[in-house]
Design a protein around this nucleic acid. Structure first.
Length: 426
RNA sequence: GGAGAGGUGGCAGAGUGGUUGAAUGCGUCAGUCUCGAAAACUGAUAUACCCGCAAGGGUAUCGGGGGUUCGAAUCCCCCCCUCUCCGCCA
């Protein structure tokens, strides 16, 4: 959620910022400013009326106490109250309109972000390791997974539907191994506190981190509007970012508590509507997957540095797994709705001959904190201010499995997992 | 799922239609006292929004939403949450 006050003061800066992510959304800013003018007019009027009514109420109370009649004020106030109700309605309507438009306007990019449409602004800022050459004709991850009996897309399709992989044997164990390996690293080496959370959240949480209302269609929803019985307005989480960030919704933290560093494993559920036929082979794009997430609630003064360490924490996983990767700084057109600055980590798969995105490390500024009302109190002046939020995958499993299988396969069709995993796979 | 009790400021806890943004206690902060500290005393101690350069003024907020009323923490309705008992269950 953008700050309406700042938007009012510097509309052009915001318009340019929003336009660099979504030209269409930028048009909505003028609408908002118009409505805001309206709103303030009505607020001023209704509040003046209420002030009058409050005074009259005191008079009525005083009259009653001393046994005087108050009929004249009473009838006058009856009318005023009717008017107040009408004006309140108007204010409420405008508020709702502003709120619904504002909640559909994306965050504006940080100054470091290249401004360019689509993915054209993305910049490779780092590469680590050498893209591997196998020296023999390898299989891609799905063929390997099938031959080894570790991955079955067919079984998943039978019990659920397309895009729900089932893992068997060592393939199943590999999931557990990766989750434990990553959680141990982040809690023991990087100072994160582990959380284990529900995978179902309410609407307020989805709004808090920005998935709803804009991307509601991409979310699995448990709401059944046509049903007589209530099933609650619930969603399956698309990422642990949602529950973990919302732990702090409506909280006012002390300055000493910042930064909050939290990690957690959860399953993630994504409808991926409209992406059919694009990079969908095997594990590249699935509807349910597992992920270890990193979340930070940071002080606004040093949130940019926190993004760099968050990125380094995610990179450490890939380095330990000896997987060649590159870091992309996303351009404005390719960033997610809520992000102000975002790095993608992409890992190389030598048989698929592709880079696979395994992590997005994002700084949201106060965009999510405003929506979720996550604040802190400054020690020096006792004033309350919004926190900054950050998060990044650390990491998502399926594409790591792709990279592990393809990079570490032997000519004999076996997998020689990197040392870092031996403790978890032995 | 059934029955009951409850949800008030940072915390505890009054308040059942009118000078209650909310008694009182605790906590916190500042001051007095002290070599310093404790104690005691004095004062301060919410958030959001609107008007205003500011000083300041105004409005709203007692789990959330709606209603009754000139006026709601207080009355009515719906929802959420917590606790106790029963049922069910990994």
């Amino acid at each position: 959620m953008l700050d309406l006050k700042k938007l009012r003061e510097a509309p052009d800066i915001y318009k340019a910022g929003v336009a660099s992510k979504s030209p269409k959304a930028a048009e909505m800013i003028d609408q908002i400013l118009e409505l805001d003018k309206d709103r303030r007019k009505w607020v001023a009027e209704v509040e003046a009326l209420k002030a009058e009514r409050n005074k009259a109420n005191d008079q009525i109370a005083a009259a009653k106490r001393s046994g005087q009649p108050a009929d004249a004020i009473l009838t006058a106030m009856k009318e005023a109250s009717q008017k107040i109700k009408e004006f309140d309605q108007k204010v409420g309507d405008v508020d709702a309109k502003i709120g619904s438009i504002l909640s559909n306007i994306p965050n504006i990019p940080h100054k470091d972000v290249p401004v360019a449409p689509g993915a054209t602004g993305n910049k490779v800022v780092k590469t680590w390791g050498e893209p591997k050459k196998l020296g023999f004709e390898g299989k891609d991850h799905l063929d390997l997974g099938n031959v080894l009996g570790w991955i079955s897309m067919e079984t998943g399709a039978k019990i659920t539907g397309a895009g729900f992989p089932v893992y068997f044997g060592e393939g199943a164990r590999l999931q557990r191994a990766l989750i434990n390996f990553m959680l141990d690293m982040h809690t023991q080496k990087h100072g994160y506190k582990e959380a284990w959370s529900p995978a179902i959240v309410n609407r307020a949480s989805m709004i808090g981190t920005g998935q709803v209302p804009k991307m509601e269609e991409d979310m699995y929803s448990l709401y059944e509007p046509e049903s007589e019985k209530k099933h609650g307005d619930f969603f399956l989480i698309p990422t642990a970012e949602v529950p973990i960030t919302n732990f702090f919704r409506d909280d006012t933290l002390t300055e000493e508590q910042l930064p909050v560093l939290m990690t957690g494993y959860t399953p993630c559920f994504r409808r991926e509507a409209g992406t059919y036929g694009k990079d969908t082979r095997g594990l590249s794009r699935v509807h349910q997957f597992d992920k270890v997430e990193l979340v930070k609630i940071a002080h606004p003064d040093n949130s940019e540095e926190e993004l760099e360490t968050l990125l380094a924490n995610a990179e450490a996983v890939l380095q330990a797994l000896e997987l060649p990767y590159r870091v992309l700084l996303l351009g404005s057109g390719d960033m997610s709705f809520s992000a102000a600055k975002c790095y993608d980590l992409e890992v190389w798969a030598p048989v698929s001959q592709k880079w696979f995105e395994v992590s997005s490390c994002s700084l949201f500024g106060d965009f999510q904190a405003r929506r979720a009302n996550i604040r802190f109190r400054r020690k020096e002046n006792n004033k309350i201010d919004f926190c900054h939020t950050l998060n990044g995958s650390g990491l998502a499993l399926p594409r790591i499995v792709i990279a592990l299988l393809e990079n570490f396969q032997t000519a004999e069709g076996k997998i020689n997992f990197p040392k870092a995993l031996s403790k978890y796979l032995s």
